[in-house]
Computed example of a mutant assay.
Amino acid sequence: MEEVLLTPPGADEVRILARGVLAAATGDDGPTPLQELLIPSLFLSMTGHAVELAALTPIGPVEFAQQLARRNRIFRERIVQTMLLAALVVRPLPAEVALRLREFADALDVDDDMIAVAEKYADGAADLAAADFDRNGYLGGLHADRLNALHTQDLDSSWGQVAHDPALAARWAQLWELPVGTLGRGVADFYRDRGFVTPGLPGSAPPLLAQHDWVHVLAGYGTTLENEIEVFAFMARANDDPRAFSLLAMVISLFETGYLKAGAGLFEANEGHLRSGGMAVRLGDAMRRGARTQGSHDFLDLDWFGLADRPITVVRSEIGLTPKAAPAIAAGSVSAWQPGGITPYQLNAARKAAESEGRPFVPWQPDPNRE
């Protein structure tokens, strides 16, 4: 038996990988304009090697699997997920693409729940696909560790809301008592600047969804829908559990294709945000940053309050967070306190929240000291 190949792929292997992704994810008419941007961006960000789609020749699933014979399962799973990501940005999804995704996955001896989702999209059964997301093993189940991390027992589903939990609300309120520069105080500022309601109070986001707000602050992403795509891409790749890819598949289905009408207990469909200028580069960079964190991080099941009093710079260093690449910054990737990192709706919500609570309204403004 040949020795397993664990080194990063070189330029020649990257071209083979790109041939497989192109063959599996594109329809008979060739790649869409978005795929022409996305596929090269993903490979450049994740491998450091550029690919030109026009120069690639087709490859079948059997030959592709033979080329990857020395690669382990996790490598093959990630390649299938790259195929899925490149396919899931297309609506309508051609039937031949869903078929080829299954053929390539079978040849690579890989199964992924999102292949069934792609098949349902291709069949026009988006409602059934939504049910698959709800049943997904990573997102669907409640367990003791998750409840302990969320500091509440008052949930009937992972994405359930908690509108009356005084202890949980008090725990979030205590973040305001932390020194400026700590992760927890950053999250408190993040909430107040946007008029967000903390878990445990009426009108709040589901506690599980609130977990990802810590990632906005930690990884340096604002709160536009484009930023949401970056955050979920970062979280999906920071987790070694391949099922976490469903997080990214979910937000693409919400904020690019609109296949999903709603998700994560709060989000509603709003199409076309991956087509925004530079988003292919930003998505690839967010995946790169997630993949390069040290260790495996399940940010949704992490007890963030155990890190709340620590300097944000220390937490970033401990997980090995790499800076954003210059092309992603040039393409518009911003943090929660940079221009463009907040929406007009959120600014207005912050003003209304201050008025309703009878406290002075301090408008959001860019603040490089909070980066």
Rank of each mutant, 00 (worst) to 15 (best):
A205G: 05
M235T: 11
L209Q: 06
A173H: 12
V110E: 01
P327Q: 05
W337A: 08
S317R: 15
D165Y: 05
F196H: 11
M287A: 08
V217A: 06
A69I: 10
L208A: 14
D309A: 15
F305I: 10
L22P: 05
T224M: 02
V251R: 07
V314A: 13
A149M: 07
D309E: 14
I39P: 00
R194P: 04
R76S: 01
I16G: 03
L247E: 04
A105D: 04
V251P: 00
G263Y: 07
V251D: 00
R76Y: 03
L218M: 07
L248F: 11
D367K: 03
S317V: 06
L68N: 00
E36A: 12
L266G: 10
A286Y: 01
G341T: 02
S253R: 04
Q346T: 01
L93S: 02
D285G: 06
L225W: 03
D112H: 09
F43L: 15
T257G: 03
P33A: 09
M46V: 10
G332Q: 05
H164G: 02
R76I: 01
L37V: 01
V315Q: 06
L37N: 01
A169P: 01
G160M: 02
R316C: 01
V281H: 02
M287K: 04
L17V: 09
L347P: 01
I319Q: 07
M287W: 08
A336H: 12
Y259E: 13
V362C: 06
L178D: 06
L201G: 00
A107R: 04
I319V: 15
Q35P: 02
V90E: 09
R316Y: 05
D29I: 05
G290V: 00
R76F: 03
E103D: 14
A122N: 00
M1N: 12
E268H: 15
A116V: 02
E371W: 14
G20I: 01
V21I: 11
D241P: 06
S45Q: 13
F64N: 03
K352W: 14
E230L: 10
D298C: 08
P31Y: 11
F196I: 09
L218I: 02
P344H: 08
E355Q: 13
A125Q: 14
L274S: 09
A326D: 15
V90F: 03
F104H: 05
G160C: 03
V362R: 14
L248C: 09
Q346E: 15
P366I: 12
Q365W: 13
N239D: 14
N348H: 15
Q153T: 15
V80E: 01
P327E: 10
G124I: 05
S356W: 02
A244K: 00
L225N: 05
A331N: 06
L6F: 12
A98Q: 09
H212F: 14
A244M: 06
S246D: 03
A336T: 11
V334K: 13
A11E: 15
G195L: 08
A18G: 07
A107G: 08
E318T: 07
H212P: 00
A87R: 08
V197L: 07
S335W: 08
F267N: 03
E268Q: 15
G200R: 10
E256G: 04
D29S: 14
E271C: 10
P92K: 10
S253L: 02
P323M: 12
S45G: 13
N348A: 11
D132H: 11
G10C: 07
I342H: 00
D145M: 12
W172G: 00
A173Y: 09
V89M: 07
L302W: 06
A98N: 05
P92M: 09
E13P: 03
F104Q: 04
